[in-house]
Amino acid sequence: MTSSWTALLWLIVVVAAIPAALWLLKRSGMAGRLGGGAAGIGLKQVGALALGPQQRVVAVEVGSGEARRWLLLGVTPQQVSTLHVMDAWPGPAPGEAGKADAAVPAGSFGVELARRLHGAAGRGGDHV
C-alpha cells in the first residue's frame, strides 16, 4: 500500500515540475537561444505602428548577414499581409546607432519608414 502512495506522490511531483520548468526556461531567455522561438530563426521586430484599435503595421527583420530582409506587414485580427519587402538597413537597425541615417541614401523607403516609426514613438505612439 505504501509503494502505491509513493508512486502517486512522485507522479504528482513530476507533473507539477513540467510547467514550473517551462516557466523558468521562458523567464531565463534560454528558449530563444536554444533554437526555438523567433530568436533561433533570425527574426526580429524592428518597429510597429498602430493604425487603429486592431490594425497595425509591423516591420520585421528576417535572416542574418547578407541575407537580411525587412518585411513590412499589415496585421489585423483576421490576417497578416505582406505590404513590402526590402533589403535590411545597412548596419545596425534604426535606434541602435545614432548615425544610421547617414548609411542609407536619402529618400529611400527605409529612411522614411524609420523616420515615421521613430516620430510616432516620440509622440507617445505605439512603438514596440
Results as ranks from 00 to 15, higher is better:
Lys44Ser: 14
Val75Lys: 01
Val75Ile: 07
Gly107Ala: 13
Gly37Ile: 03
His118Phe: 09
Gly95Thr: 04
Val62Lys: 00
Ala106Val: 15
Gln55Val: 13
Ala100Trp: 15
Gln45Tyr: 00
Met30Leu: 14
Arg33Lys: 12
Leu117Glu: 02
Leu49Cys: 06
Gly110Tyr: 06
Gly29Cys: 04
Gly74Leu: 01
Gly42Tyr: 00
Lys99Val: 11
Ala31Asn: 08
Ile41Met: 10
Asp87His: 11
Trp89Ser: 02
Val80Ala: 10
Thr76Phe: 02
Pro94Arg: 12
Arg56Trp: 15
Pro77Val: 03
Lys26Trp: 12
Val111Asn: 06
Ala31Thr: 04
Ala67Ser: 14
Pro92Asn: 05
Ala67Phe: 00
Val111His: 09
Ile41Pro: 01
Val60Gln: 03
Pro53Gly: 00
Ala39Asn: 08
Val80Lys: 00
Arg69Leu: 15
Arg116Ile: 05
Phe109Met: 11
Ala93Phe: 06
Ser64Leu: 00
Ala48Glu: 07
Gly32Leu: 05
Glu112Arg: 15
Pro53Leu: 05
Val104Trp: 12
Pro53Gln: 01
Leu113Glu: 02
Ala50Gln: 09
Gly91Thr: 04
Ala114Lys: 06
Gly37Glu: 04
Arg68Asp: 10
Ala48Asp: 06
Phe109Gln: 08
Gln55Arg: 02
Pro53His: 07
Lys44Pro: 05
Arg33Gly: 15
Arg33Pro: 15
Ala50Val: 13
Pro77Tyr: 05
Leu71Lys: 00
Gly74Thr: 00
Val46Trp: 02
Pro94Ala: 06
Val85Arg: 02
Asp101Phe: 02
Lys99Thr: 11
